[in-house]
């Protein structure tokens, strides 16, 4: 492995992911299952929140991946715009629906958790609001991809949209914080001393976060492989027609 850019070659990418994808997929299932079972059945109930606290093992990793997926799309879009590696553009495309799904999971588990804790399914809290806004950005990005036939034009336009969208998503986040003070607690995990979470919860939570990261990686790899195959098929059909 001499350089990361070698994987910009679709053939090399396909060959490597041929054996990498099953490993990542199995690891994702094992780690996530371990984390969730550990979290759900082998942690004590919180003295105030009772067993509802256990939804944290889905809520926090999903929310984290929702943001990370957008960051990954941003990096992939930049790589596409600067170095024009097709795999990168296709990976960004593959990541969008997964990120959107993670956002929805985060919102739904948050609502289910918020109902017993805050007494409401939804509040216009800055964190909740900016997550909903993030979901809208995902929708726009996915719709943009879906609307354009030519893959290179689509990759270019969505990459620019992703860059501009990132700036406005951050702006919206701060606008939402300015606009309303919230119910949502601060960061659940922090390296600063005096963290509020006990290791009994933290260990399975970290396991779940790694598991969700692996799930995301496996799905993005699978999605990118599907996109590459679809492109190849289109090229073959076009060649057939020419002949």
């Amino acid at each position: 492995m001499s350089s990361l850019w070698e994987y910009a070659n679709p053939l090399k990418f396909m060959r490597t992911t041929d054996w990498l994808l099953p490993i990542v997929a199995v690891a994702a299932v094992v780690v996530t299952a371990t984390g969730l079972i550990w979290g759900f059945f082998f942690t004590p109930d919180d003295f105030r929140q009772g067993s509802t606290v256990k939804i944290v093992f889905i809520h926090v990793p999903a929310a984290m991946m929702a943001i990370n997926a957008w960051v990954m799309m941003l990096v992939a879009s930049l790589i596409w715009l600067i170095r024009r590696h097709h795999v990168s553009a296709l990976a960004a495309r593959a990541a969008a629906p997964i990120g959107a799904t993670m956002t929805v999971i985060g919102l739904i588990t948050g609502a289910v958790w918020g109902q017993p804790m805050w007494g409401t399914w939804w509040a216009w809290d800055p964190r909740l609001t900016s997550f909903l806004i993030l979901f809208l950005f995902y929708l726009g990005y996915i719709a943009m991809w879906a609307a354009i036939d030519d893959p290179d034009t689509g990759a270019d336009l969505t990459a620019v949209l992703c860059l501009v969208g990132s700036v406005f998503a951050v702006l919206s986040r701060y606008a939402a914080m300015f606009w309303n003070q919230g119910l949502h607690q601060g960061a659940s995990l922090s390296v600063a001393p005096g963290t509020r979470m006990d290791w009994a919860y933290k260990a399975p939570l970290y396991t779940c976060m790694v598991g969700f990261g692996l799930i995301f990686l496996a799905l993005v790899l699978a999605g990118t492989r599907t996109e590459i195959r679809a492109r190849r098929m289109k090229a073959l059909v076009a060649r057939e027609r020419m002949a």
Binding site: G140, G165, S172, A175
Partner: peptide, 19 residues
């Protein structure tokens, strides 16, 4: 598609303007 793309971008302007 235009409205789906543009309206989220309008959010910060709307928040501060209405505020």
């Amino acid at each position: 598609l235009l409205s789906l793309l543009v309206l989220p971008l309008y959010i910060p302007t709307l928040v501060f303007g209405a505020e």
